[in-house]
Design a binder for these strands. Structure first.
Lengths: 128, 128, 128, 128
DNA sequence: GTGGTCTAGACCACC
DNA sequence: GTGGTCTAGACCACG
């Protein structure tokens, strides 16, 4: 499942953040189940062609957020996540992006009708 | 018009970027008309309580993007912008944010119906 | 004769410099003869739609270079210029621009043949 | 390759501009290939004996022009440049200088024959 | 190690 | 008065 994670070299978004966002999405959406074993830092870094430091930071951040658990000498696993926590986190990024879109629209005096049209366009482009 | 620009000290977003985004929006949406004189960098800096360097960078960036023109000893003005260019730039940030929202939704297997509901929620929160 | 002088608002070149270059050219090429009366600062500024300060600087600079003479309460005149001085100054700007062109060509490894072609193109564009 | 860049302390031309022009020439003429790693801003500043800020501005400007790409924590690289863009940019400075030369010649009523002679003189001085 | 942001302050050039 | 350049230095973020 985690093999679906991809890096966009062109983006200005930091590597660690790109990976973190995608990995968190896999966990809070249930695509990676509780207890699932994640690849080793070295293996993951090799697959994504990035530094092990970057992956280490991702694991550390997600562990600090209670989404991962690392067992010394064994590996990194998906932690048991409280269901309500999971649901809350699942949509937070979506909502945040929508808020930003509405704010940007307001700034350029884009009408609600125009904004709704752009929303449908975006939906269509990403294949229903 | 430019007096509406505000800084969010709490945000992690760089000062210069916050200002740039808002000023660009005022220009490409036509709220600041071609030829309009902007405040001097010193005055603007004082108003926003930031360094003159920060404002200078904003003006410089927007000039590089063809939205402003500065004349030494005279001041900084809104440049003549090609109408099609302006229209294209007006909605680019909105579209980008919507794309990100849809992408985030797909990552957490959020259905289109659920996403649409979140969109309406965001619209409502920002006052129709 | 001096009515041919024009300002390019778009150029980044300082106003005073644009005017100075053109006025100097008129003098050293003999198009403005020795003793010719130049317009008053105020009149010149009005014609060129620029500040009187700008014109004053032009007159001052050219007077310092010995090309103009100001008589209190009378006006500004083209000074008597040594013939050899005049000839020397006549082509200095041309030579300088050609030097820069060759230097720029060298920097981008432009062959002499290619450069010569560009030279002919430039000549043709400015009407033989 | 970038070691060839030099600063002329005497020139009135801004430091950052001198460096920018030379670095751009190296890129658009292909002497610095796509993907090539440039020196760190600190190293470059030390070499040229100028402030890191000055180098940073150069890199920033060239990135805004699409010629460089910087990745935080990694370094600054020559960007992938569209071939037609590159060709267009390669000669733009040469053409501009030639235009200025012809314009200056016209201003002082310099004949085409005389101008051509000056062109050949300039070529000869810069070593065929 | 790398680049990114922001600061204060000086000095110059232009109008 | 305006903007333009350059400085030194601090602190943060990324790999």
């Amino acid at each position: 499942m985690w093999r679906t994670i991809q890096i966009n070299e062109q983006s200005a978004e930091p590597l660690y953040h790109q990976i973190e966002v995608q990995l968190r999405a896999l966990i809070v959406s249930g695509q990676l189940e509780e207890g699932a074993l994640l690849p080793s830092i070295r293996e993951f870094a090799q697959q994504l062609k990035c530094s092990v430091i970057t992956i280490r930071r991702v694991y550390q951040d997600l562990e600090a957020q209670g989404l991962l658990r690392t067992k010394q000498g064994t590996g990194t696993f998906v932690a048991k996540v409280d269901a309500s926590d999971r649901d809350r986190q699942r949509l937070v990024n979506v909502i945040q992006a929508l808020e930003e879109a509405v704010a940007a629209a307001r700034r350029v005096q884009c009408s609600d009708e125009e904004l709704e049209q752009l929303f449908r366009d975006a939906l269509r482009r990403h294949g229903d």
